[in-house]
Design a protein around this nucleic acid. Structure first.
Length: 586
RNA sequence: GCGCCCGUAGCUCAAUGGAUAGAGCACCAGACUACGGAUCUGGGGGCUACAGGUUCAAGUCCUGUCGGGCGCACCA
């Protein structure tokens, strides 16, 4: 179902032509591939092109050119949609669509507003996007930040594509890491009190651990030291857990990320989810005992080896709770699960997909989005990070320094499975070098333009109120075509789970806007020092410089304002998908 | 050693199997007496790592080689 008016009409016309050719016996195919439309790279190739004839050619056992000719011959009423359709070697159909059909895109954007760009591909299917899910053992670092930005944008994209989306944070609060955190805090606490200290191997070293020890001291005083070791550590762990979770919530809040639900590993376990999940696997014969451990037969679904699920010492591995958690998610009835993971976990995909299948669901019920490392730079020089020594760059620091909008945009600028260089100096620059400002400025320009118009008493019409026939310049037309592409960019981006496509689109759209804005005037000149003359237009075409020589009539001003308004709307919608604000002033 | 990802302009990166591979940065040369110069215009720059193969059509798919990253725990 096409979701944009030009593509819709063109696709429809092509389908009818194919249908008709088939009825006449000119084409034999039973089913043909979906018709894809591209923007041709060269103007002489028309506004839209399709390679459909070429993909049909081999099945038809005809040359692509013949197939294209047949389609062309069967295009019933080309004049209602097309100005011109041509065949180009080796078999492209190059179409020039009627200008007034293109212009309807503007009214469509007006009518749909914030919803322009959405599609119904998801058909209400429920999807759970799980992301961040950092252990509550410290503040979020910059890598978590990228995961958060990606997960959130993916969720936005899916919602815009008609899915019923929930966002979930899985709290790994049951494992050894939490215990280690408790021990680390307790060790620092003892240190503060001048007691003997054995700092745990691989313990948490960050300054925040000392901070928490200080707070524990303030709350519990010296009493803690009197308790048995394990009990004392347990108290520290509980305190640290609540504290860290709160820190993470605040980190997320300041980054502008909100979850619908928080799932706790510990509560899952205490509710018996692990036991019952293992029971199910055992019943289905995916478990076996060997060398005193319990194994999951993940090789049954293509994993390279089987995996231990309960160790010799009786402790469960993380796989056990992951099985339980994914089973829980599946049982909650989601049609699709999306996990956003750090790319260093890519080796776990086969086994989690094996889990999904062992539980009786299709493999593709789970899709994993991998997020690669972030290299933090400052003026081109690498900022060294080592979580081990507790020297990692906190997300909070970056957000404080460059702002949430900039940070998100940078995180989303590249395909998520590629390493990202994040240069703090560049991110702070307020220039064209900084793509965030470039896009946001385009939006601010539109709103600024409207403010000036208002101050001069010039109305900003909607497309339905404007005379769009006044838009005859190729630059206007280029903008309209770009706007028309937005819905398919959203759909492609959602299907591929690749938010960076939106970023690229927005940069291109912003560029077109800046070019247009520089080249053309929209409002008439303000009368010198006298607002009462506002509304006067240039009647004579010989004003100052060459590039401003075009006739600016109220009719053209109105139409251009209407066009600008829709550009602003689309930038707003696109930035919205990225979770980035569209400022009216900068 | 095995597996996954990657190799595209000097740098950072785009490109549902489609036409002459595109942006930004950097570099060079330019542009406003009216709407925000946080802007715009032009220029040089490429055997898409290499070698085969599939296809009407390959940066894209397959095989191999070389180079880089990440995994290969009864850690999370």
């Amino acid at each position: 179902m096409p979701h944009e008016i030009v593509r819709g009409k063109v696709t429809e016309a092509l389908q009818q032509a194919l249908q008709q050719a088939k009825q006449k016996g000119q084409l034999i195919v039973e089913t043909w591939p979906s018709i894809t439309l591209d923007f041709p790279k060269r103007p002489e190739w028309g506004d839209l092109a399709t390679a459909i004839a070429m993909s049909l050619a081999s099945h038809e056992r005809r040359s692509p050119k013949d197939v294209a000719q047949i389609i062309l011959d069967n295009l019933d009423q080309p004049r209602s949609v097309f100005d011109r359709v041509e065949i180009a070697a080796p078999g492209f159909l190059n179409m020039t669509v009627k200008r007034d059909l293109w212009m309807k895109v503007l009214s469509q954007i007006e009518a749909e507003g914030n919803a322009y760009g959405q599609n119904d591909f998801g058909k209400g299917r429920r999807v759970l996007v799980e992301y961040v899910s950092a252990n509550p053992t410290g503040p979020m670092h910059i890598g978590h930040g990228r995961g958060a930005a990606v997960g959130d944008a993916v969720a936005n994209l899916l919602r815009a594509s008609g899915f019923d989306v929930s966002r979930e944070y899985y709290i790994n609060d049951a494992g050894r890491q939490m215990k280690l955190l408790g021990q680390s805090v307790y060790a620092r606490y003892r240190q503060r009190n001048g007691l003997t200290v054995v700092f745990p191997e691989d313990g948490y070293q960050g300054a925040y651990v000392e901070q928490m020890a200080k707070q524990v001291q303030a709350r519990l005083g010296a009493d803690l030291a009197a308790l048995p070791l394990e009990q004392a550590q347990q108290q520290c762990q509980e305190f640290a857990y609540r504290e860290m979770l709160e820190v993470i919530r605040q980190d997320l809040r300041s980054f502008g990320i909100a979850f619908d639900s928080w799932a706790s590993e510990a509560s899952l376990m205490s509710a018996g989810a692990v036991t019952s999940a293992l029971e199910e696997l055992r019943r289905k014969e995916f478990l076996f005992d060997q060398e005193g451990a319990l194994w999951f037969r993940s090789t049954a679904y293509g994993d390279e080896k089987d995996r231990v699920i309960r160790k010799q010492d009786g402790e469960y591995t993380y796989l056990a709770s992951d099985v339980a958690y994914h089973r829980d998610k599946l049982q909650r009835g989601y049609d699709l699960l999306i996990d956003v993971w750090g790319a260093d976990h890519h080796g776990y995909i086969p086994r989690m997909q094996a889990v999904v299948q062992a539980l009786g669901y299709p493999k593709d019920r789970l899709r994993v989005v991998l997020v690669q490392m972030v290299n933090l730079l400052r003026g081109g020089k690498k900022v060294e990070m080592s979580k081990r020594a507790g020297e990692f760059v906190a997300l909070r620091e970056v957000v404080d320094e460059v702002g949430a909008d900039v940070a998100k945009f940078f995180f989303l600028m590249r395909s998520s499975d590629r390493h990202l260089d994040f240069d703090l100096e560049l991110a702070k620059q307020q220039s064209a070098d900084n793509p965030v400002y470039y896009v946001q400025y385009a939006h601010a320009r539109v709103t600024s333009l409207f403010r000036v118009a208002a101050s001069r008493g010039i109305a900003v019409p909607k497309p339905s109120e404007a005379d769009l026939e006044a838009l005859t310049d190729p630059d206007e037309f280029t903008l309209v075509r770009k706007l028309s592409a937005y819905p398919s960019v959203v759909e492609g981006s959602a299907l591929a789970l690749e938010p960076h496509r939106i970023v690229f689109y927005l940069q291109e759209l912003a560029q077109l806007l800046h070019t247009f804005y520089f080249k053309h005037r929209i409002l008439p000149p303000a009368a010198e020092g006298d607002a009462s003359d506002a509304g006067q237009f240039v009647k004579d075409a010989t004003v100052s410089s060459v590039k401003h020589r075009e006739q600016l009539t109220p009719r053209l001003t109105g139409a251009r304002l209407a066009l600008m308004g829709q550009v602003g709307q689309v930038i707003r919608n696109g930035l919205g998908l990225l979770g980035v604000s569209a400022p009216e002033r900068m």
